[in-house]
Simulated assay, not measured.
Amino acid sequence: MAPSAFRHDHRPPGFVLWPRAVEAVARIARIAPVVTLSNVSYWDERETDVAALLAPHLQAHHPSWQLGFAKPDPRAVRTVARLHGRDPAEVLHVGDSFDYDVRGALAAGAHALWINPRPPSADALRLLAEHPDRVTVVPDLTRAVEHIEQTVLPSTHMIRSSSP
């Protein structure tokens, strides 16, 4: 269905980057390619150009409405990995949602870096224990960047194993 044929007055709240997100992405982009995978709709993307907000530091931006898959569907992460010539095991998926970002990355065979300032739930702790070398938990974006700088091998963009 063409977007013009869908009669819906959708007014999403404006998208706002986390404070210091551009600086964080710039630091990461110096050592590894950075791409985004976002569960945004066509209408949300019309309101905010995420790629432009993070330019010139992004290699690519992949909104779910273009991919045909949304997180936590593992096909979303697998598709992005394939589009960039990578195996999902080489991908470090960074996000703040346990259900969408961590579960989705693990289901795809990727690594996850979970930004979570609160103590994980019992359910989250069980899943983290099942994947000790594939998930790291950090309290904020600054620590996420530091973790990436310490664990990504710049010459290969491969991730060193680490645990939370």
Rank of each mutant, 00 (worst) to 15 (best):
R103Q: 14
P88S: 02
D99M: 08
P74H: 10
G68D: 06
D101P: 09
E90T: 06
Q59E: 15
V77T: 10
V80A: 01
L113E: 02
H84S: 07
P72K: 05
H61Y: 08
A76E: 11
W65Q: 12
L58D: 04
D44P: 09
N39A: 01
P56C: 10
L58P: 02
L58V: 05
H111C: 11
R46G: 15
E45R: 13
E45Q: 15
L53S: 10
L113K: 03
L106I: 14
G68E: 05
I31P: 00
R103H: 13
P63C: 13
R82I: 11
V50A: 03
A32E: 02
G104V: 08
H61V: 14
V77E: 00
L37Q: 06
V94G: 08
A76Q: 05
D101S: 13
I28S: 05
P56E: 04
A105E: 09
Y100S: 15
L53K: 11
T48R: 07
R75N: 12
I28N: 06
H61G: 13
A89M: 07
L54E: 02
L37R: 03
G95Y: 01
F98S: 09
Y42F: 08
H84D: 03
R86T: 05
D96M: 06
R30Y: 06
A70V: 11
Q59L: 15
L113I: 04
V40I: 15
